[in-house]
């Protein structure tokens, strides 16, 4: 099996329970696997949560930790996917002094070209939001940094997979038992 380190997106479908995040992060911690990003939200199924976690590991490691996740009582299913197998993005927010919008006309061009969205504008500051791949957000950050950014934040990755996730069938099977 492949021993080269790659970026994997791990999706974990779980019951919604306090303490589960602790259980999941402990599995990474014990194996010294750094979490590049972690997002948790409601999934496509009512009452089922979905963790989306990005890690750089080998496929051998990925297979093994998927086993560890699925072993947890409140984990319904876990999967790992390569970059090619997912559609993913992140979101960045920029808070910038409003004066700059008028003093530096270039900023307006940057906003237009980057497809960033203006979330709000007031006398003191305006807020930009940009969704996309990490490098797109980073490139916008570099461009704006020249003028000064008051605050910047970037979300973890959210991702959906190209293949079908067979969670619903699994849950239905339980109900029909």
């Amino acid at each position: 099996m492949n021993k080269e380190i790659k970026t994997f997106t791990i999706s974990i479908y779980t019951e919604n329970n306090i303490g589960l995040l602790n259980r999941i992060s402990a599995i990474f911690q014990r194996r010294h696997i750094n979490i590049e990003s972690l997002t948790t939200s409601q999934s496509e199924i009512e009452g089922v949560n979905r963790f989306v976690i990005v890690v750089n590991i080998t496929e051998v490691q990925a297979k093994k930790i998927i086993g560890q996740f699925e072993k947890q009582v409140e984990v319904i299913r876990a999967y790992y996917h390569t970059e090619e197998e997912t559609i993913y993005q992140e979101s960045g927010m920029f808070k910038i002094k409003s004066d700059l919008l008028f003093e530096e006309p270039q900023i307006q061009n940057i906003i237009k070209e980057s497809n960033a969205r203006i979330v709000t504008v007031n006398k003191e500051f305006f807020v930009l939001e940009k969704s996309g791949r990490r490098n797109e957000i980073e490139s916008l950050r570099r461009d704006l940094n020249v003028f000064g950014i008051m605050q910047f934040v970037r979300s973890g990755r959210i991702a959906v997979t190209k293949e079908e996730m067979k969670i619903t069938e699994m849950l239905l099977a339980f109900n029909n038992q």
Binding site: T14, E15, V73, E74, V75, I76, L171, F174, N175, Q177
Partner: peptide, 8 residues
């Protein structure tokens, strides 16, 4: 008594 947990 419990006889099944759906995630398990």
């Amino acid at each position: 008594k419990c006889t099944g947990v759906r995630s398990y």
